[in-house]
């Protein structure tokens, strides 16, 4: 690890100025991914600016019925918060499906969104990787593909985004509040925060250098009370998703009034399944239409030989999650 300067400024403005002024500068919050990347030699930094005690650690209900989550709220507290559990259960379940108790106590809301892919080639500095070192090639395309993307990949990168939290926020259409080097704040829809790899896989997000996440806002969404997160992985707990599904369902009289679906573990960003959603609205809430909706989404999948299983897995996971939600909403699901 190269020598590292450390700063703990007193204000958000100071923190932003510090990082903006140092090309090899980055924010440190919980550090559960960044410290590891420093050890691995994947992150080569000269300056860490500690913002863990700078951004908000509170969860506040907003007058419009939404909720504002401070960027420094630990994942464990977020998942346990009564308002989140009651009104946005998909968010609580997604957080609890990720990492371990030890990590969730330290990892923050903002940091969770900015964690980097766990692609083995990205994390191994001895192998070519366009995300870590642009222009060197993608080892995963010809290598071990089990965990790779089936949607939206590019010839340069087939990595997946590891966050469970972000998949739930994609369903909830959260807004990410940031503070930028120009002194202004902006709100970025969660769905626009992360990007597809394209020709610049080294860029995970739409944030500019020095732009700091200060909070995440959940808009009101009454039918999110009937929402859940299902994660499928290679061991029962404490592993990244092969496929995960976040969904919220609004059923009235056996008919789907509204639905939101997002997938994790399948793309470089949380994958909002808009084709499946469109297909489902107005359809009877039941296994046949859920399966047809899943198929409508997965028709666009472009799996690799080593991860073609994810298509069937995602189809089953979407169908089962929607059936569970139908049952929770009081329908039979048949």
């Amino acid at each position: 690890m190269r020598p590292l300067r450390y700063a703990r400024p007193d204000t958000v403005t100071q923190a932003v100025t510090l990082v903006a002024g140092e090309p090899r500068g980055a924010y440190l919050a919980g550090g559960t991914n960044l410290v590891d990347l420093l050890k691995l030699g994947v992150a080569n930094l000269d300056l860490l600016v500690d913002v863990r005690r700078l951004t908000s650690t509170s969860i506040d209900e907003l007058p419009d019925g939404g909720v504002l989550i401070g960027a420094a709220v630990p994942n464990g507290e977020l998942a346990a918060h009564p308002v989140i559990r009651q009104r946005y259960p998909v968010l609580s379940e997604a957080v609890l499906a990720g990492a371990s108790g030890q990590l969730r106590n330290v990892a923050t809301t903002g940091g969770n969104l900015l964690q980097r892919t766990r692609c083995a080639y990205f994390q191994n500095v001895t192998t070519p990787c366009n995300k870590r070192e642009p222009g060197t090639g993608c080892s995963a395309r010809e290598g071990y593909q089990r965990e790779m993307a089936i949607f939206g990949a590019s010839p340069e990168c087939v990595a997946t985004h590891p966050s469970d939290l972000a998949v739930a926020l994609a369903v909830l259409e959260a807004q990410v509040h940031t503070h930028g080097p120009d002194g202004g704040g902006r709100r970025i829809p969660l769905l626009d925060l992360h990007r597809l790899p394209g020709h610049e896989p080294q860029r995970d997000t739409a944030l500019g250098h020095g732009e700091l996440i200060t909070a995440v806002e959940l808009p009101p969404l009454p039918f999110a009370a009937t929402s859940r997160y299902r994660k499928i992985r290679d061991r029962a707990s404490y592993a990244f998703a092969l496929v995960s599904v976040a969904a919220a369902l609004d059923v009235a009289g056996g008919v789907v009034r509204d639905v939101r679906i997002a997938l994790g573990g399948v793309a470089h960003k949380p994958w909002r399944a808009t084709r499946a959603e469109q297909r489902l609205r107005g359809e009877p809430a039941g296994e046949a239409s859920f399966r047809a909706a899943a198929d409508a989404e997965l028709a666009a999948a472009e799996p690799l030989p080593g991860n073609a299983f994810k298509v069937r897995l995602a189809r089953a996971a979407i169908t089962r999650t929607l059936l569970d939600l139908t049952q929770a909403a009081g329908g039979s699901g048949r």
Binding site: L28, G31, V35, L48, Q102, L103, N105
Partner: peptide, 10 residues
Amino acid sequence: GWRAVSCLAL
């Protein structure tokens, strides 16, 4: 007061 892994804490 909360459990944490000390290897990833600076």
